[in-house]
Simulated assay, not measured.
Amino acid sequence: MLINFELKATVNLSSCKVIMFKGRTRSHYNLRFFNKVTSTFRHPEVPNTSIKLLLFPFSLDGEARDWLDKEPPRSILTWDDLVSKFINQFFPPSKTTYLRNKITNFFQEPNESFNEAWERFKGLLRQCPHHGFSELHQLDTFYNSLNSNDQDALDSAAGGNFLDKMPQEGLAIIESKSKVRYSRSR
């Protein structure tokens, strides 16, 4: 369905150097920030994904702009098409595989605090936002990577087996434990 609309944006994306992506590194950060900025744009009866599709070219420069200009006409029809092609171009499959393996094989270092391990694990997830692991899988991986004392502390905070909790409950427990430990260590 083709919808004609005019978008009078108060933000000039091409002059916002923070989100200009040139095509070398940090493609996932550019995409995340672009999503955050464009999620604030609203137009009646126009899906936000259409707005993103329209504005995305203005967030590119250099090699990234050249890549998009070389895409065949009508080869990108949806926001999902664009994201998929963008990630495949600027986040090669080998890097995805490498980071997915780091997430899967994550373990708490011997002298690493719970909070430090959690922050490092979240950092790996942010480095590869298209990792494809469910929240349950992420929590299971993190829990099983912990030393026995930290596993016991999570089980205690959960009032039983931590892994029996729903993912949102488990995440809340981890975040709470992380904040308590972090504030005590200051």
Rank of each mutant, 00 (worst) to 15 (best):
E45Q: 14
I3Y: 11
F5V: 06
C128L: 07
G160Q: 10
P44S: 10
E112W: 07
C16F: 15
K177A: 14
K70M: 12
R100E: 14
D69H: 09
K177F: 13
K85Q: 15
D155F: 05
R120E: 14
G123P: 00
I3S: 08
D152Y: 12
E6F: 11
K122V: 03
N115Q: 09
R42Q: 13
T49A: 08
F5W: 13
D80Q: 14
P93E: 13
L13T: 00
L136P: 00
L77P: 05
F34K: 00
W79K: 04
F91A: 02
P72S: 12
E45D: 15
A117G: 03
F106Q: 03
N105F: 10
N48V: 13
L136F: 09
H131R: 04
S39C: 12
P44N: 11
L125F: 06
E119Q: 10
E63S: 04
N115R: 07
A153F: 08
N12C: 12
N35Q: 13
K85G: 11
F56M: 03
I173D: 02
M20I: 15
S176P: 00
N161Q: 12
G159L: 04
D155P: 03
I174F: 01
E135H: 10
R65K: 15
D140P: 00
Y182D: 07
E169L: 10
V180W: 09
N161E: 12
K17H: 10
H130M: 06
I173M: 03
T25N: 14
S27G: 11
S183M: 12
S148Q: 14
Q168C: 09
Q127V: 00
D155Q: 04
P44F: 07
S176H: 13
D69K: 11
V180A: 13
A153Q: 13
L53R: 02
N105I: 04
E169Q: 15
W79M: 06
G132T: 06
S84N: 15
N111M: 12
A64V: 04
A158E: 05
K165L: 15
P167Y: 07
S50I: 00
K122H: 06
G160E: 09
F91I: 01
K22G: 15
Q108T: 05
M1W: 00
D150P: 01
L154V: 04
R184H: 10
W79C: 04
V11E: 05
F114Q: 00
L2W: 10
V180M: 12
Q168N: 14
A153C: 09
L60M: 11
F33A: 09
A158F: 07
R181T: 13
E135V: 02
D150G: 00
H28C: 11
R181M: 08
K165P: 03
Y143E: 01
R186S: 08
S134C: 02
Y98H: 15
A9R: 07
